[in-house]
Design a protein around this nucleic acid. Structure first.
Lengths: 369, 369
DNA sequence: TTGTACGCGTTATCAT
DNA sequence: ATGATAACGCGTACAA
């Protein structure tokens, strides 16, 4: 026995059009108790005296519908408080407007700025962001596969490095994956990176111009893809000076890629100001802020007289009066726009080769150099 | 004519069990071209030589399945890379594990900290966050109604004030709505607020203890629900001193509820240090940071000698060496846990009266008082 | 323990 | 311009 006969309820076999025509009153009369009857297109159809097909066409803007009918259906829909069920729609169309956003927490300021712009841009394009937090890198593969369960139309990875084997599953389903500021070791995925190479060069050139001789690069233990590239280019640019002994270089390592990491590293590495590095490039601004505070308030050093510091990202705090950090700027909003453009191309079905885009960077001089 | 006969393909009418048993090879043979055939439970069933029901039962941990069958189905599922289609599942069960998160951008540091913990907690509970950015407050109602289209199991509002009429739509569908640090003028919604009243008192008491006499409260133009309560309580607590003329009070207003707002307000209101307020309570930390920087670096004032400042929230930056802001602390993680607890109760169906929860606050003394 | 058949709410297709 | 019907992929009541 059927749970409920759809057709008889929808009235396609038995119209019974004007039988009960006051659902608002009916629903309103029983407040809070599990009335639960969600208004469907069948309800609108019955109430407006048309078929579900017509309702569907009206609400999806199909041209071939008479103005009178369209207006009537629109009104009944509003009146009943009908909201289309996108879940059901996507069952039929096999298209979803969900975009998966893979991140790990919201503690990294630049990533937050990027996500902010990204969420906005995604929404502007008619999609909805579904956020996945992968705190445990080991679960990254599993978490990304979970996204498939929601039939996402695309995925943006802003943290961690997905295991290569997940690539095939996304490829097979034609679900585009974009890696942003990641290594890009994912088969079939597109990659967007800011110009880490240029950033390292800019930092080196600027610090070389200060006349300081003891260089350092501060990055988190183990490194990250972006950080490593920045550091390597930085050192390469110092090579001539290092070769002839004019300058020295010391790699500096902190325990976490954040304010506290930078702070603790400074306390540890800058205790002897006479010998410690005095021209430091930090892998990211957040680390640089911690280093600045420790240098100034714990060690009593003057910036930039005693130590010159260059960061990377240009997060909001870098502009604040208390820091005035000189840093390599990458634009979160441009990064977000590039990401969404790429996604839309892929979703549209453009069958291009894997893309590798580079976002330009620029040096922003403030007061720490 | 049907697009494709489901039953014949699924084999429920015509089993044809061992007919074609190498779909991996079949799919793999045509790389990248719109093969598109997403693996469904029917595929797994056919491959494992069982019915779809059995597959469904195996994967949802139904007891009454033989171990042999279960194992075989599990393996086939893995082998085919089968991922359950939660969209289809929720069509049937009429339950969704999507939770709508209504926010407006990610520029407010405390809200970001809260969202960070909230996203984590939601995910831990087996739900997924669907983020909606309502930059335009006027669109808030529409945006919240959009959430209904995704059949969300619940909604958390962290920004803006939803128009009262949306309440009924959520009530009617039994979709719980939780307002966090909002006014709570929504019919049927639960509300969680930090203890703004106690916070205002704590700030007043602390500043009164400094011996300073010119008090001020800095808030964004037009005010916010939380800010207004904090300010009103603050002033009430000053009432005795104000009444007998021992102290004075000046309301201070900034254009935006952020760093720049605080900065500009300080430049404007603290230019004459002899007469300007010297004991200032800021509606939120982010504003306080701007005020501090302007006071110190633009106006050359000493903190707390010339001006004592108290903030509200205890965001991460407040702890940083450059600020060391004395502030009223509310715990983002407790707020998130309370929110998720409430949601889970409601989703479970507990039919309680509207809840109004208060999160305790505490004074955190640092160096700005 | 396992299979059959139905329905969730929508859109695409075909028919009128 | 509009209506009837068949899917979409899943869970589950019922049958066996």
């Amino acid at each position: 026995m059927p749970k409920r006969s759809k057709n008889s309820a929808a009235g396609e076999f038995a119209p019974m059009s004007k039988a009960e025509h006051k659902p608002a009153t009916r629903d309103g009369a029983e407040p809070g108790r599990d009335v639960q009857h969600i208004v469907t297109s069948a309800d609108v159809a019955r109430e407006a005296g048309v078929s579900r097909s017509t309702v569907s066409r009206c609400l999806s803007g199909d041209r071939r519908i008479s103005d009178a009918t369209r207006k009537r259906v629109q009104e009944t829909a509003n009146q009943l408080g009908y909201q289309i069920n996108k879940i059901a729609r996507s069952m039929n169309t096999r298209k979803s407007d969900l975009i998966g956003l893979v991140t790990s927490g919201l503690s990294d300021p630049f990533r937050v700025e990027f996500l902010d712009k990204l969420i906005f841009a995604i929404q502007q394009s008619g999609y909805r962001p579904l956020v996945i937090d992968v705190s445990d890198p080991a679960q990254m593969g599993t978490s990304m596969m979970h996204l498939l369960q929601y039939q996402v139309a695309g995925v943006v990875v802003t943290s961690g490095s997905p295991p290569p084997e997940v690539g095939v599953h996304f490829l097979k389903r034609n679900v585009p994956v974009v890696l942003v500021n990641r290594a890009g070791r994912l088969d079939g995925a597109d990659v967007i990176n800011c110009d880490n190479v240029r950033g390292g060069e800019l930092a080196a050139d600027l610090l070389l111009g200060t006349g300081k001789t003891r260089f350092g690069f501060l990055n988190v233990k183990g490194g990250t893809f972006s950080g490593n590239v920045r550091g390597e280019t930085f050192v390469s640019r110092l090579a001539p000076g290092l070769a002839n002994g004019d300058i020295s270089f010391t790699p500096l390592v902190c325990d976490s890629a954040d304010y506290d990491g930078g702070f603790n590293a400074a306390v540890k590495f800058l205790a002897q100001p006479e010998t410690a590095p005095n021209a430091i490039f930090c892998a990211k601004d957040h680390i640089a802020l911690g280093l600045l505070d420790a240098a100034r308030f714990e060690l009593g050093l003057r910036i930039p007289e005693d130590i010159a510091v260059v960061g990377f990202d240009d997060i909001a705090a870098a502009r604040q009066g208390a820091y005035q950090l000189t840093t390599v700027r990458q634009s979160a909003i441009k990064l977000a726009d590039m990401t969404v453009d790429l996604l839309r191309q892929r979703i549209r079905g453009d069958n291009l080769a894997d893309q590798r885009l580079i976002l330009p960077v620029e040096m922003t001089r403030r007061r720490t150099v």
